[in-house]
Amino acid sequence: MIRLQGVSKRYKGASTYAVRDLDLEVRPGEIFGFLGPNGAGKTTTIKMIVGLLKADQGKVLVNGHDLTLDPIAAKRSMGYVPDKPDLYPRLTGLEYLNLIGDVYGVDGPTRSKRLAHYLEMFQLTEAVGDLIQSFSRGMQQKLALTGALLHAPALFILDEPMVGLDPKSSHLFKEIMREHVKQGNTVFFSTHVLEVAEQLCNRVGIIKQGELIACGTMEELRTGRDRDGSSLEKLFLELTDEGGSYEE
């Protein structure tokens, strides 16, 4: 579903790489957790996958489409929610969702059904007619999630999706992720909350200073290389404890 081949990115004027020589494959039907300390390159990687940043080197393939050669087909197959979902403040929630629905070509009956489902689930049905600027951060996050799910994307990409969600919404959202992959779709998300990754992910990747330092199922990571089945937290700290982090 996602294939990164030797992807590197160095920001203009920076002396170090934000992401370096990254090879990664995320398969259909799995929830993949992308972990790493602050400034490790998680958001940069995600932005390259969704087409917000251009990789300096390497290839990004989404659902078989090369993001450089066929960005539109690649984008059509994914839904993305950034870490800070800045949405047009002067549109109403419904106007924003209809914009997304129209652009992704979601037909009327399907759109109505999905909107009713997700808005009800996220308790946004009443507020959706208000301007987005009046929404709380959590509400904006839920609206962005609804927008990203509206066209039932084969690949769902989320940057820190749990930030700003209340426990109930957070629980619901985990259920949505599980349901989404059950239908053969893929979820790729970054998080700092290791428990969430531990509960949800089929596989996780750990990135540090722009390089992938570990990748596999929880079991593989726990038992690999002389480890004694320690928790993900312990493993994460063990893998990322040396060296400082730097800004992306």
């Binding site: 209809n98 629905g101 301007l131």
Partner: peptide, 29 residues
């Protein structure tokens, strides 16, 4: 900064919509 939420009586939101192509929806937005 408060926006229009506080204390306002909300009208019932009708989720109906007119389907439009990308051109018209982006123009309108």
């Amino acid at each position: 900064l408060e926006g229009s939420r506080g204390g306002k009586r909300r009208k019932k939101v009708v989720l109906e919509h007119v389907e439009r192509g990308a051109f018209l929806t982006l123009l309108s937005t």
